[in-house]
């Protein structure tokens, strides 16, 4: 199959890559660019662990055609920390014990970031709504909800 050039911003830096037509964004990120932070879970858009942000909006990268992000801005968990300085959400996830096996965590973090970026002080219900497309098998969700609320309370500042 013919390969198609795609250019996009990934966590603020330019990427240019040849991808097979029809390939999905998750594949291009993991195998093409080598960003392994978004995870492959169900491959059909029901588990949420592949969630990335496209122009700030949460997207299921396993269901997103790679060529649709041409010229767009993509964010993954690999871009959350700045050098050694973790994002407020990452600190809050650690402080609140919001990860056990960790497989859902990248998707949870990105779904939460999309929420906090547009709504810095969400209610509990809004947090629940924001992560309702993401499945977690270990935590029972409560610690994750608490972590997102704590990150919001910190005002999005990096702390710790």
């Amino acid at each position: 199959m013919a390969k198609k050039p795609i250019q996009f911003q990934l966590n603020g830096s330019g990427q240019a890559i040849f991808a097979e037509e029809g390939s999905n964004l998750l594949d291009v990120l993991r195998r093409g660019v080598g960003d392994l932070s978004p995870k492959y879970g169900c491959g059909q858009g029901t588990c949420g662990t592949c969630t990335v942000l496209v122009n700030g909006e949460p997207r299921l990268s396993c269901l997103t055609l790679a060529e649709t992000v041409e010229g767009q801005s993509v964010e993954t968990t690999a871009g959350l920390a700045h050098g050694p300085q973790l994002h407020a959400l990452q600190h809050a996830f650690m402080d609140n014990f919001a990860a056990q096996c960790g497989y859902c965590t990248p998707g949870m973090l990105m779904a939460a970031k999309a929420l906090l970026d547009r709504n810095p002080s969400p209610s509990r219900e809004e947090v629940v709504e924001a992560i309702s497309g993401n499945i977690c098998r270990c935590t029972g969700y409560e610690p994750i909800i608490n972590a997102v609320l704590a990150a919001a309370q910190s005002g999005g500042r990096r702390y710790g």
Partner: peptide
């Protein structure tokens, strides 16, 4: 055979514990 059919409580279904 997938998460559409295999049901589990989501974050909106949990109760205070």
């Amino acid at each position: 055979v997938d998460f559409n059919e295999y049901l589990m409580p989501g974050p909106g279904d949990i109760a205070p514990h």
